[in-house]
Nucleic acid binder design. Structure first.
Lengths: 245, 245
DNA sequence: GCGGTCAACAGTGTATACATTAACCGTGAT
DNA sequence: ATCACGGTTAATGTATACACTGTTGACCGC
């Protein structure tokens, strides 16, 4: 039951929360990549941290070769900067960086939602989404914003996962990773996400109705508002003296 | 004179046509990357071509290390497949692949256009775009579809380059590369792009007016129609027995 | 005291050597 | 004849060695 189906599933999970699950058997270069990414996203490697290739290799108990290959990937994803002879530095994002990232991310997510609507929702999928919405509303009432935020990730991830476009999902993953840290930074500042819950319902309705235009509009408005809120909160947080996002 | 300006220009060119200009002084890994990418996009390395790492290294007169680093990048961009112990293979795209790519690309481009409209067009920028439109219309009348197609690239590239979001431009570059080959394949099949020319004018008008919603709509319609046409032509071409896109 | 030049060095970029592992082929049994 | 098993081998994954180049700091001249 818990194992993989024989054919590639039409629906694929996207953007799992940062985790190191299942990297055990992978080649060293992939372990290095996932390990470093995990440390960066969870803050174990704080923004601004600078390490030499040699130090990274020692940290991961590997030689420089796989570590280099991993850092190249991470640099392309925008998580680190490589400055030759100065080491690799964990990127610290400015407000403008976050805005840029969110602009890309929301464009991709809007397209994903359109695609899902174009194909419509199966009953099982619909049920799953509704169930998530219920949970999120209960969490809102209970005031558990942290867990609501995780579920929010899961919800958007679940919807996107139904779009059937693997390249789109990969791109979403990448940019989601880039905004993960600033996003978690402002969780404690969030007000009750009552509006988000309502907007989520609207999105699911449009998806179930198979109406791409309505879905696009709902998703666009939701993201525009939510992203603006995130930027505002982040600005406050940074003004408070928190360093690097 | 020819060197870089002191401050990063606000407008940056995007998606230059495949070229090897200016890779002379770069590190071997970057030369390998650009060289291979160029060969793939221009068809010098045809889809389906398979080469071992050693063979690639010999081809480029380099050792395996920089070649490996280049192939990893190319694989992430979707231009090649790496199958351990079977060599790297130049990807051959199916119609579904192209559709997926265009879905991502158009989503990004729509967002770029929105951003440009949000900030509005300077007089110099406006003039430059209008000038391009004129040229494209003359090329259309002259029936020079090949050159029109190049200018079309340049036009979309120029617009996107004004969006001011570097990450968005990088993503555009990447997906533009993925669709470049199938796009050139169908150039000889294209009808006179009269409609595209009209739509382009509409887009520039919306940009000049600083109306993001109008720009989004114009761009969205343009891409939806043009992409559909491209897919239709490609289907014909593939049905004719052309192998791999 | 300040600025410039040069030399030593550290760190990366590249090449190569070594280990590992999966593909392929041959052999043997059923 | 076909399938299974195992050994061989070739290709990759990883480690290391080497070379090159930018940086840093010291020393000298102004």
């Amino acid at each position: 039951m818990s194992s993989k189906p024989k054919v590639a599933p039409f629906v694929r999970p996207a953007r799992p929360r940062p985790s190191l699950a299942g990297i055990a058997g992978l080649p060293a270069r992939d372990r290095a990549y996932h390990d470093l990414r995990y440390r960066i996203l969870t803050g174990r490697l704080a923004p601004g941290t600078t390490l030499l290739e040699t130090e990274l290799a020692a940290l991961l108990s590997l030689s420089r070769t796989p570590v280099r290959e991993a850092t190249i990937r991470l640099a392309e994803e925008g998580l680190i900067d490589i400055r030759p002879r100065h080491g690799v530095t964990v990127r610290s994002l400015t407000l403008n960086d976050v805005r840029d990232i969110l602009d890309v991310l929301s464009a991709l997510e809007i397209r994903a939602v359109e695609l899902v609507a174009k194909r419509g929702l199966g009953p099982e999928e619909h049920g799953r989404l509704l169930h998530m919405l219920d949970r999120m509303e209960r969490l809102t009432e209970a005031g558990d914003i942290a867990q609501w935020s995780d579920m929010d990730d899961d919800f958007h991830s679940a919807v996107a996962g139904m779009c059937g476009n693997g390249r789109l999902l990969s791109a979403l993953d990448e940019y989601w990773g880039q905004q993960y840290r600033p996003r978690t930074m402002i969780v404690p500042l969030r007000p009750k996400p009552t509006l988000s819950n309502i907007e989520h319902r609207g999105i699911v309705e449009a998806l179930a109705a198979g109406d791409p235009e309505a879905a696009r509009l709902a998703q666009q408005r939701h993201r525009a508002r939510a992203d603006q809120q995130q930027l505002d909160l982040l600005r406050d947080r940074l003004a408070d003296g928190a360093e690097g996002a």
